[in-house]
Amino acid sequence: MDYRKLGNSGAVVSSLCLGTMTFGAEADEATSFQLMDLYAEAGGNFLDTADVYSAGVSEEIVGRWLKAHPTEAGQMVVATKGRFPMGKGPNDIGISRRHLVRALDASLKRLGVGQIDLYQMHAWDALTPIEETLRFLNDAVSAGKIAYYGFSNFLGWHITKAVHLAKANHWAPPVTLQPQYNLLVREIELEIVPACLDAGIGLLPWSPLGGGWLAGKYQRDVKPTGATRLGENPNRGMEAFGPRNSQERTWQIIDAVAAVAKNREATSAQVALAWVAAQPAVTSVILGARTAEQLKDNLGAGSLTLGSDEIASLSAISAPQISDYPYGTAGTNQRFRKIEGGR
């Protein structure tokens, strides 16, 4: 496994991050400990959780593992998030100072640490002025409660506005963004990736396997069954399966991934993860395994480097489908070409 800078910070993290959303829900504590053991043994040093995962239980499990493994804990970069409701009150949600000051202290307690390495705003909050959030985060850095901060599920203009406000006020800058990103979902390349590249912000993609689709778990027009996320919840499974199943693009991408995997004697999951890891601005790819077998397979992506031709072919078949304007040939790009050519 290789290591990369955590966005524009000086911290270094492994290119594969262990996500812990399954801890306390789909993975009990014993299984969660096993997953963290396997991840640490493979050289991983980056754990990602959130207060809302299993209503705080995920953070508690991570905290107990860190306490039981002091040597590994000293090397781990621990990330968590705040934003979503942890109570029933009107102020138990959002990224206001009122909510975050309590959410951060609660996360520190559940994790059993004196400082959180990366504290992320789990989503944009239209009710709270972003200046209020940034001022709180800067204060938290100054107080030593967090080392760095980042965002999750922000849009391009959210990121750019926050970056420039932080710079103008001499506040600590954001270092990361955690978005959904995979071969099936690439729309962030239109605005969000350019905003992150412009600011030096590192991407931490979640759902890099598209909910299991890119691992080759599903078959065209076959109802999901068995030990898969969609198969274990038939009603929700069919609701989520139908739209993606009906798109020819889905199966073209899955087939292309499988072809590369066969040629490289790898699994489809490893190829899909390696593609994401190779994309511009990506710092670390978040693995969402539920079992030791899944994690072992996913960790194999850490030693898989795709060739430029393989990346190009997968990128071409999965190119995001966008309308002609404003990103297409009849939009801004065409106008630039006319200007360059002398109108």
Rank of each mutant, 00 (worst) to 15 (best):
I95A: 15
G94S: 08
V175S: 01
V175R: 03
A147D: 01
E132F: 04
G144S: 12
G89Q: 09
S152L: 03
R110A: 09
H99T: 06
D139F: 12
S142D: 13
I116Q: 02
A126Y: 10
K167R: 11
A103G: 00
Y148P: 02
H158K: 14
Y119M: 02
V163Y: 04
A126V: 09
W171F: 07
F154H: 10
G112E: 09
R98T: 14
I93R: 14
H170I: 15
A103H: 01
A168S: 14
G89M: 08
L100F: 03
L104R: 05
L108N: 06
P90E: 08
G112F: 09
L137W: 01
Q120T: 05
L100S: 06
A172I: 07
P85Y: 03
G82L: 02
P173S: 13
G87W: 05
V78E: 01
A143R: 12
H158F: 10
G94C: 07
S152R: 01
T128E: 05
G144V: 09
W124C: 13
D117I: 00
G112C: 11
M121R: 12
E131R: 12
D117M: 02
G94A: 09
R110V: 01
F136C: 13
G89E: 09
V163K: 02
M121F: 12
K167I: 09
S96Q: 09
Y119G: 00
D125P: 07
L104C: 05
K161W: 03
K81Q: 06
A106H: 07
M121K: 11
I116G: 05
T128L: 07
T133E: 15
G150P: 03
L155R: 12
G82K: 03
R97A: 11
L118P: 00
V141Q: 07
M121D: 11
T80W: 05
A79F: 06
V163M: 06
N153G: 15
D139T: 06
S107Y: 00
A168G: 13
A172E: 10
D139A: 10
G150I: 03
L137M: 04
A103S: 02
M121Q: 14
F154E: 11
N138I: 00
W124L: 14
R135C: 15
L118C: 08
D139S: 10
M76V: 06
R110D: 02
Q115M: 12
I93E: 13
L155I: 11
T80G: 04
